[in-house]
Amino acid sequence: MAREVIYRHAGTVRLTHWINVLCLLVLLMSGLQIFNAHPALYFGSTSDFADPAVAMTYERDGPDGPIGVTDLFGTRFDTTGWLGGGYEADGEFQRYGFPWSITLPGFRSLAKGRSWHFFFAWAFVINGLIYLGYTLLSGHLRRDLAPDRGQLKGIWQSIKDHALFRFDHGEEAKRYNVLQKLSYLIVIFILLPLMLATGLTMSPGMDAAFPWLLDIFGGRQSARTIHFISASLIVLFVLVHVFMVLVTGVWNNLRSMITGRFVIKTEEAEG
């Protein structure tokens, strides 16, 4: 097999990518801190404490003492140590939604969690606008992210190949495959705007200035739930993205996002 080095990612793409990594990590951890202040989700304009869509709580009288419980649309699960509460090293039971080990800060502080979340939310928005502007003006969207007709026709074959861990090589590896393109487009133009819009809808100040936001999302509590769902889908996208980086070549993928250079294995010419 011969090797060909291509220039895959422009400097703007690489820089905004790594800023996004930092912003998303802080937003996730601080968002869990904010969620822990009231670890339940509802649909509608008010909190129906008797009938939450999702709730992370605890029960005092478990088989061996208090247990963490997650209520999902009326079905309850024992999630001690993961969600709802768990035992500390000293044997004491502590209530929480998500464990403090994955929140920012790593202890109960709604004020600090909000400060981290709001600062990095605006950093994330500004960085996203820079990326979007570059994408539109440079032709990156049309050239690299928009799937062509041939790729769309082969989407089921691409799904099958990925399920069997058969990945593109040669000329096909020089561009994103159809699943990558569709995933990026969904995140960029659906999930991220939805997360931003629902985040703004949860702000009383924004609701006063733009009351139609509440009408669009069916109330502040519905906006909070949709915000949580869209954020969860973005986390799922990131996990799949990292998994694919690992199974398709860690160093090659990292190098392409650090230096822009990506190595393609091609068949040696006959002769």
Rank of each mutant, 00 (worst) to 15 (best):
25 L>A: 13
222 S>M: 11
251 W>M: 13
97 G>L: 04
185 L>C: 10
128 G>H: 01
226 I>C: 05
64 D>Q: 13
47 S>G: 13
266 T>W: 03
178 V>C: 07
214 L>G: 14
50 A>Q: 13
249 G>T: 05
100 W>H: 01
267 E>D: 12
235 V>D: 06
96 Y>A: 10
45 S>G: 05
1 M>L: 08
134 Y>P: 03
119 F>S: 15
60 R>Y: 00
115 S>C: 11
90 D>Y: 05
224 R>D: 00
40 A>E: 03
1 M>S: 04
120 F>Q: 08
123 A>F: 15
131 Y>E: 01
266 T>G: 07
15 L>M: 12
162 H>I: 12
221 Q>T: 00
98 F>L: 13
74 G>I: 07
200 L>A: 09
21 V>H: 00
245 V>W: 03
58 Y>E: 10
156 W>F: 15
176 Y>V: 15
233 L>P: 01
28 L>V: 04
11 G>T: 11
89 A>W: 09
39 P>S: 05
253 N>K: 08
25 L>R: 01
159 I>P: 09
147 P>G: 05
261 R>N: 11
56 M>Y: 00
45 S>D: 04
43 F>N: 09
136 L>M: 09
30 S>Q: 10
146 A>L: 15
125 V>T: 07
83 L>H: 05
228 F>K: 00
99 P>M: 00
250 V>M: 12
122 W>E: 10
55 A>Y: 12
65 G>S: 04
154 G>V: 09
34 I>A: 02
87 Y>N: 14
240 V>G: 09
197 A>H: 00
172 E>P: 03
